[in-house]
């Protein structure tokens, strides 16, 4: 497998895996939750790396995912207390956790292999190198880092297929879902676990900061062009794939890190689609059919 092919595979799989749960966050108007989570999981990643010596150990994944859920549960409790309003409750918690992560990283981990750069932007390019492949016999199965993401994608897809109706009713009218006796709490919590897992597993490839762009921007772009939930999922995944490849191409031409260019392309595509849809809408108003 050529380096470019491996890069393309890893980029597309990362983008698609991130944007699938992102669709539900966008329609639930919880986009900023990813921002909070991606900061909150950070100390978990650092401690996991300290204990196991690698940023890919199962221990690290579990620890970091649990810390991501601290945001969900903690923000819920803070909101119920009535002392702070919706977003502030997340804002209270994640800076503390992120600060602990940064402090640990800069004091304890100077020897271990996590750089500030990797935290910010991931190491997508390095993870596609021939030394990082999964090779069985003589078959090159692509970058090792791609496989956990692919597994997560399959789990997400199964979960969404199974609980689709509960997810949709809970997002649109939670009171109806609860009074009909749908398992909203369980399904919502499961979704949050998957979101947190996505943030953690995507950490290696895209870092803690860019993951929010990859999860939220493709569905947000999709929302501009479709008004149907089913289509939105499909369109978001398509946009994620295209922007991943475009971003990779820009990075390749400019000799830049891939993940930041993917996020950058997501932003540019969002702006273009926004402009075009606005223009079309104002044209329609100007020329009533």
């Amino acid at each position: 497998m050529t380096l470019l092919a491996a890069l393309a595979l890893l980029s597309v799989v990362t983008a698609v895996t991130c944007s699938l749960p992102g669709v539900f966050l966008v329609v639930r108007r919880q986009s900023m939750l990813v921002e909070a989570m991606s900061h909150a999981v950070f100390p978990g990643i650092v401690i996991g790396a300290l204990v196991s010596g690698s940023t890919r150990s199962p221990l690290m994944i579990v620890l970091a995912t649990v810390l991501g859920l601290v945001i969900v549960v903690g923000a819920d409790k803070a909101r119920q207390s009535g002392l702070v309003t919706a977003d502030a409750s997340q804002g209270l918690i994640y800076p503390v956790l992120f600060a602990i992560g940064v402090a640990l990283l800069s004091t304890q981990l100077s020897s271990v292999h996590i750089s500030e750069n990797a935290v910010l932007a991931g190491e997508l390019n390095l993870l596609a190198l021939p030394t990082e492949r999964w090779i069985i016999g003589t078959t090159d199965l692509g970058p090792q880092a791609m496989w956990p993401l692919l597994l997560l994608l399959v789990i997400d897809a199964l979960f969404i297929t199974l609980t689709y109706r509960v997810l949709v009713v809970s997002a649109f009218d939670p009171n109806l879902a609860r009074t009909m006796g749908l398992p909203t709490r369980t399904v919502n919590m499961a979704l949050m676990v998957l979101v947190s897992l996505t943030v953690v597993v995507a950490f290696n490839t895209v870092g803690a900061i860019l993951v929010v762009a990859l999860m939220i921007v493709p569905p947000a772009t999709g929302r501009l062009v479709t008004n149907r939930m089913g289509w939105l999922i499909f369109v978001s995944l398509a946009i994620a794939s295209v922007t991943a490849l475009l971003g990779l191409w820009v990075a390749y031409l400019g000799d830049l890190a891939t993940a930041p260019m993917m996020a950058f392309t997501d932003g540019v595509v969002f702006l273009i689609v926004l402009l075009v849809t606005r223009l079309v809408a104002s044209r329609r108003r100007a020329l009533p059919a």
């Binding site: 329609v27 109706r165 949709v168 649109f172 009218d173 008004n227 149907r228 939930m229 289509w231 939105l232």
Partner: peptide, 11 residues
């Protein structure tokens, strides 16, 4: 929310 009248009633 990205849905139609029919889908809301189906809920």
């Amino acid at each position: 929310f990205p849905t139609t009248v029919r889908d809301v009633v189906m809920m």
